[in-house]
Write a protein that binds this DNA or RNA. Structure first.
Length: 425
DNA sequence: TCTGGGGTCCTAGGACCC
DNA sequence: TCTGGGGTCCTAGGACCC
C-alpha cells in the first residue's frame, strides 16, 4: 500500500428508518422505528426515536406505551426494500471512485487518493448526489486508515456543524478527537475487550492508541494489534474488493408461537432449507454440508430447555432444493426430541463452492438429471422473484399461511414489486 | 536412569462486525 | 401474548503422523 492512502467510510444514516422515510415524506421529522423479524425488537431508529430514549434492541412490547404516547411510526422490517435501496446508494457512490468495498448493507469503504478532487470536496459531492438520487442521507468520514475513517464518520454523524462529512487526514485536533471516542466505540473493540481494557484504565481511543503493541497482541490477538496500529495511522486492513463465495449461509427464525409438533417443525425446517437453496443458486454455488438446529424458548426458564444441532454431508454437493430438504429432514430426525416447546430453528450450509469448476465425484448425476433439476429450480426462482418470495414452494414446506412470522407493520415493497410502485400525482 | 519434537488438521469456543 | 438474523476470523488444544 502506498504511503498516503486515503480511506473514506460512507455510512447511511439510520438506514432502515431512512428507507421507510424516503417513500413517505410525511414521516420527515417524525420518530420511526423498524422492528426485527417477528416484530420482536427494535433494530433501527430515526434520530427522533433515539431522542425519545428508545434503545437499540428494545423489546417492542415493552415500549408500546411510549410508541403510542409519542406517535412513533412503527415498521416491520422490509428487507426486499432495504436491499434494493442499498444497491442504489452503492451504485451512485461507485460513480465517483473505482476503488470501493461494499462492507455491509449500509456501509462502503472508498479510496479517495488517486482522484483529482480533494478528498473532502469529493466526499461532499458524493453525499449530495446520493441524497438527491436516492433520498438516503449518508455521512462520510475520511482518514489514513479504515479505523480512523470510521472514527471520522462518527464525528461527521454526531456533529451536524460539519455537514455530514469529516476528515482526520492532517487533522491538528486528532488527539482531542480520539480522546473523545469511548473505547467500546472503536471499530474492532467490542463489549468484552472494552470491559477488560477498562479494568486496565483504558477508557478511550487515544489511551488505547498509546499501548504497547505486544501487550495488545497478547491479549487481543493479531486483530487487536491491527486496530492499535490503524489508530496510529498505519494501514493494516486493506480495501477488499474481491467477491468471495460465502463460507456459510444460514436461514433461521424465532417463531411467533411455540411449536411442539414434529410435522410442523419439519415443514418449517423444509422452508428454511428452501430459502438457503435459493440463496445458494443466486450465487451459482453448491454446498457440501448441511446443519439443522432447534432451540426452546431461552426466556422461559420455567419450562424445560433443550437445544441441539447436527450436521451431515450431502452425498453430492448441491443447491437443489429437494436434496437440501431431504437432508435437513434427516438431520432434524436426529435432534428432535418430543415434549419440548420449540421457539427457534435454523438451517445452515457450508462447504460452499462455485458450481462451475467443481471437482467431480464418484456418483455424479447424469447430465440430463442435472439439467432437469436446474431448469426446475430456475423456474421457481424466477416466479418468486417476479411475484414475491414463497409464491411457489415445495410441498414439504406446507401450504399453510406464514403464521410462524408476525409482520404487522410491513410497508409496501415500493421498489421491487410492480404493484407497490408509488404513484406520482 | 531414561520417556522427542515438529508438523498438520480439525474442532470448539470466543471474539468481533453489521 | 411479546426479547432478531446473518456473517467472519483467530486461537488453543487434541488427535494423529512421522
Amino acid at each position: 500500500m502506498p504511503p498516503s492512502t486515503i480511506f473514506a467510510l460512507l455510512d447511511c444514516n439510520n438506514f432502515y428508518a431512512s428507507c421507510e422515510r424516503a417513500f413517505n415524506p410525511k414521516l420527515r421529522g417524525r420518530p420511526i422505528v423498524v422492528l426485527s423479524n417477528n416484530d420482536g425488537c427494535v433494530i433501527a431508529r430515526s434520530n427522533e426515536a433515539k431522542a425519545l430514549g428508545i434503545p437499540m434492541g428494545a423489546p417492542a412490547f415493552k415500549f408500546q406505551p411510549l410508541f403510542k404516547k409519542h406517535g412513533v411510526h412503527v415498521f416491520s422490517s422490509n428487507f426486499a426494500l432495504y436491499g434494493d435501496m442499498s444497491r442504489r446508494v452503492m451504485e451512485t457512490a461507485s460513480l465517483f471512485t473505482p476503488d470501493m468495498e461494499i462492507y455491509s448493507i449500509d456501509e462502503a469503504f472508498l479510496r479517495l487518493d488517486r482522484m483529482h478532487d480533494q478528498p473532502l470536496d469529493l466526499a461532499r459531492k458524493i453525499r449530495a448526489t446520493v441524497l438527491q438520487w436516492t433520498g438516503i442521507p449518508v455521512s462520510i468520514g475520511i482518514g489514513p486508515t479504515k479505523t480512523l475513517a470510521k472514527i471520522a464518520n462518527r464525528v461527521a454523524k454526531k456533529q451536524p456543524e460539519h455537514g455530514g462529512t469529516f476528515s482526520l487526514v492532517d487533522c491538528p485536533d486528532q488527539d482531542q478527537i480520539l480522546a473523545g471516542i469511548n473505547i467500546e466505540d472503536v471499530w474492532g473493540i467490542g463489549s468484552r475487550y472494552s470491559k477488560k481494557l477498562r479494568e486496565f484504565g483504558i477508557r478511550n481511543a487515544l489511551q488505547f492508541s498509546r499501548l504497547d503493541k505486544d501487550w495488545v497482541k497478547k491479549r487481543m490477538t493479531v486483530n487487536g494489534m491491527h486496530t492499535l496500529l490503524e489508530l496510529q495511522g498505519i494501514p493494516c486492513i486493506p480495501l477488499d474488493q474481491t467477491v468471495a463465495t460465502p463460507k456459510s449461509i444460514v436461514c433461521s427464525r424465532t417463531f411467533a408461537r411455540a411449536v411442539q409438533d414434529k410435522d410442523q417443525l419439519e415443514q418449517i425446517v423444509s422452508g428454511y432449507a428452501a430459502r438457503v437453496g435459493e440463496r445458494l443458486r443466486g450465487q451459482n454455488c453448491i454446498a457440501g454440508q448441511i446443519q439443522v438446529f432447534v432451540l426452546t424458548d431461552r426466556f422461559r426458564l420455567d419450562k424445560p430447555q433443550y437445544g441441539n444441532a447436527a450436521t451431515i454431508s450431502l452425498a453430492i454437493p448441491s443447491s437443489h432444493t429437494p436434496n437440501l430438504i431431504r437432508a435437513a429432514r434427516t438431520v432434524l430426525d436426529r435432534i428432535f426430541k418430543p415434549g419440548y416447546e420449540y421457539r427457534k430453528a435454523g438451517v445452515m450450509v457450508f462447504g460452499i463452492e462455485k458450481e462451475q469448476g467443481r471437482r467431480l465425484m464418484l456418483f455424479e448425476p447424469s447430465p440430463e438429471e442435472l439439467a432437469r433439476s436446474k431448469a426446475l429450480m430456475g423456474v421457481m426462482d424466477r416466479i418468486n422473484a417476479r411475484w414475491g418470495a414463497m409464491t411457489m414452494r415445495m410441498a414439504a414446506e406446507g401450504t399453510g399461511k406464514r403464521w410462524v412470522m408476525r409482520q404487522a407493520h410491513l410497508s409496501p415493497r415500493y421498489t421491487t414489486d410492480w404493484k407497490a410502485l408509488p404513484r406520482a400525482l
